[in-house]
Simulated assay, not measured.
Amino acid sequence: MSGLSTPTFCRRLLQRQLVLALRRPAGVANPLLFFLMVVALFPLGLGPDPARLASFAPGILWIIALLSSLLTSDTVFRSDFDDGSLEQLLLSPQPLYFSVLAYVVAHWLVTGVLLAIASPVFGLMLGLPGAALPTLFASLLLGSAVLSLVGGIGAALTVGLKRGGVLISLLILPLYIPVLIFGSAAVRAAAEGFPVGPHLAILGAMLCLSIALAPFAIAAGLRISIDA
């Protein structure tokens, strides 16, 4: 594949990651099932009052989405590291920036996009106003992409460790906090009838910054892990 152009190489790499993910349906379904179970448990803990549930819904939904992304971050490079494909990727003449971006996009498509699509249903379960559902979808679509990019950094740094899941949480959870703050604030503003544009714009700016910088950090992390 060394003779392929960079766009063709990355497209095939993305297709490969998606095919591998679809061959493991449990890995795709686990974040959705986790989302559903936690959403179903919150009314039991907070009580059945619809107004109370609706007031907590933005934060609840975003926290669950963050944890769902965190649960799957460890798997971004794990299988390719185990079978040696990751080392071959580092030796490829293709730019590593675009290669790791293909990995992250695949992770986002099978986790963040699916969670964003399912989120309006979970929002209705918690009594979130219908007017806030489009904002919930848009904020999760933008924010989950940032979570995947940042999570990829932690996955790259810990891919050589047998038990890297807990370490990923310690490394990247502080970087998730700004996304959580502005994502939940956007949904809360929509539910209360306030403008949501500034919050979504900040999420968009975070995404642009992450696309520009995170792949370089991921590439450096993979080189460190492979050489260690």
Rank of each mutant, 00 (worst) to 15 (best):
P120A: 00
S99H: 11
T158Y: 13
R16N: 12
G164Y: 09
L114S: 06
D74N: 10
W62N: 11
R78Q: 09
A102T: 11
S85A: 04
S69M: 03
L173G: 08
R23P: 14
A155K: 00
F182V: 15
S119F: 14
A57H: 02
L209Q: 05
L41N: 10
R78H: 14
F34Y: 14
L142T: 11
I64G: 05
A191V: 12
P195C: 06
A21W: 15
S148V: 02
S92Q: 05
A116N: 05
A214S: 10
E87C: 07
G45A: 10
L126S: 06
A132G: 07
Y97M: 03
I60N: 08
L32G: 13
D83E: 01
G47N: 02
V179W: 06
I172N: 04
R11M: 13
P120Q: 00
R163C: 07
D80L: 06
V187E: 02
M206N: 12
L203T: 09
L161E: 07
S169Q: 04
N30V: 10
P129I: 02
R163D: 13
P93W: 04
V146Q: 01
G154H: 05
M1W: 12
Q88R: 04
L173T: 12
A156T: 10
G221C: 01
P129D: 01
G3K: 07
T6N: 11
F98L: 06
M206T: 14
V105S: 03
P120K: 00
L86C: 09
R12H: 15
L36S: 12
F182I: 13
S144V: 03
L86K: 02
G112I: 01
P178D: 01
L203F: 08
P7S: 00
A155C: 05
I181A: 07
G221L: 00
L203C: 06
S73N: 13
S139H: 12
A138I: 12
P95L: 00
L149G: 08
D83I: 02
L66K: 04
R16V: 08
T72E: 10
I153W: 09
Q88K: 05
A191W: 10
P58Q: 00
V150T: 09
V39G: 10
D80C: 09
A228K: 11
